[in-house]
């Protein structure tokens, strides 16, 4: 089945105000940067964004924050973004901070048809407030529910026209689970090849989870913390 669309405009068609979006990436690594730029252009507002981080002030989801397009963020760590902190402390932005492993598993569960699961993470902390607690093997766990989204937007290294995806290095992170959890999943890739060119043995995300795929026009791939050693 051919999932290819010609450009980012076509890929993101249908995204409207008040929708819930999942966006892959960890920090600025593996984020769908072409799609984020298009969301800024589209000007859709009051979005609920599920993403591990919130970008930095002038890149990644920070661009949507600056433009006041996000109503609510569901993330695990947002420490790199001053504008985020300002909007959160002033109450303009609703924020749900959840443990990173729980966030990953909640997306996976959403895509895998599992409505909820028990995890020890967050027991005894404010994360557990209002959640069911149950003991297994003498250890308390809390009930966490699955997450899904109207649209999941992921970024892969290579993809084929069937929507099969291959990620590179640690740019994989949240992308595979979010791809599973979107009612409609959009994949932007650096390299788009005809079906049959990717080795089926080495595909990370099967194309069944992807509804639209396009080749991103430009990838800046900004580095957040450039750390090096000298020769």
């Amino acid at each position: 089945m051919n999932k290819e669309v010609q450009n980012v405009e076509e890929a993101l068609a249908g995204i409207e105000d008040n929708m819930t979006l999942m966006l892959g990436g960890f920090g600025l690594c593996g984020i769908p940067e072409n799609s984020i730029a298009q969301l800024v252009k589209m000007g859709v507002r009051d979005l609920t964004c599920i993403s591990n981080n919130a970008g930095v002030d002038d890149f990644g989801l920070g661009l949507l924050l600056q433009n006041r397009q996000i109503k609510k963020m569901i993330s695990s760590y947002v420490g790199e973004n001053d504008e985020f902190e300002r909007q959160m402390l002033s109450g303009e932005l609703e924020v749900d901070l959840i443990p990173q492993g729980s966030l990953a598993e909640r997306c996976r569960a959403g895509g895998a048809g599992i409505p909820a699961f028990y995890t020890p993470a967050g027991y005894g902390t404010e994360v557990a407030d209002g959640k069911e607690v149950r003991e297994f093997n003498g250890k308390p766990h809390i009930l966490e529910s699955a997450l899904t989204a109207d649209y999941a937007i992921v970024k892969a290294w290579k993809g084929d026209t069937e929507g099969n995806l291959v990620f590179k290095a640690t740019a994989r992170n949240f992308n595979p689970m979010m791809a599973m959890a979107g009612k409609i999943t959009i994949a932007e890739v650096e390299e788009l090849v005809p079906a049959g060119e990717l080795d089926p043995n080495f595909i990370h995300t099967p194309g069944i989870f992807v509804q639209r795929i396009f080749k991103g026009e430009h990838f800046e791939k900004r580095i957040e913390q450039r750390t090096v050693r000298t020769k």
């Binding site: 695990s76 947002v78 420490g79 443990p99 902390t125």
Partner: peptide
């Protein structure tokens, strides 16, 4: 307000 990341 930074978040717990993976610490929990």
């Amino acid at each position: 307000v930074k978040g717990m990341g993976g610490a929990m």
